[in-house]
Design a protein around this nucleic acid. Structure first.
Lengths: 129, 129
DNA sequence: TAACTGTACTATGCTTACTAGTACAGGTGT
DNA sequence: ACACCTGTACTAGTAAGCATAGTACAGTTA
């Protein structure tokens, strides 16, 4: 389910957080779908349960999952209205990426084409595997 | 010139790297423009010169600057043709951001508008301060 | 020569990440 | 009630990374 790059400088828990967010925003993990338990995932990935625990805690803090003691951790349905800060953060990341693409020589028309491609994929509901 | 967030979890040298890259891709720092020396910047920012050194080394490794012993460190002109890996990396980051914007409920039309705004700013040559 | 430049070390202390282990409380099925 | 799962919350230890301080070398420029 997950692949970790143990040679990467990114901490393991952060890789997990990123991966799970990616699965959530790409609708691979559905709202209210249960995540593997910290113990199951830790033995799958052969890492310590506390590390999973930290990742899940971070995901919960960021609002992507909710956890019920004794039951498990679940994907939190996307809430509208509470995402202003995150959207602003995404917009400044977008500005940065666009600026760097321009800096590296990608023509504006090609950038727009890429964005439209990504949006049409999204509209079709197809997942990019 | 730079602002560091000393409360951030990001290491100081990485903040420097990010800041300088941002200035470069937004054309605030011009090609072949000299960066402050490690000693000047370290006293400006009241951090150790070795930390600046590490940031400059990272920037050089990533291809954004070049350093000449005895002379200083300079913004490297953007080279065309050698940016495939970086562009691909940017594209996957773009895909991620678009997906998350969609996930958080931003309509596709608004995303396109944002992108076009950013591109028209870029075309005008105006800097976003 | 003096004053700058980048570069390359060494040593130290602090912080973070990760592991291992343990234990508690909650939930579910038999 | 028991067994087995779940998340949660700790403690302790180790390793790695970060930042600092200091030093020194070589190159450049006036």
């Amino acid at each position: 389910m997950f692949e970790l790059d143990l040679r990467s400088r990114a901490p393991i828990y952060e890789q997990l957080v990123d991966k799970i967010i990616e699965l959530i925003i790409n609708n691979v993990l559905k709202p209210d779908e249960q995540l593997p338990s910290v113990r199951v995932l830790s033995s799958e990935l052969t890492i310590n349960p506390n590390t999973i625990q930290k990742a899940y805690r971070e995901l919960e803090y960021r609002g992507y999952i909710y956890s019920l003691p004794g039951k498990g951790s679940f994907v939190k349905p996307a809430v509208s209205g509470d995402n202003t800060a995150r959207l602003q953060s995404l917009e400044s990341e977008l500005a940065r990426i666009i600026a760097e693409m321009r800096y590296l020589g990608m023509p504006p028309g090609e950038i727009v084409t890429r964005v439209n491609d990504l949006l049409s994929k999204d509209k079709g509901g197809k997942m990019n595997d």
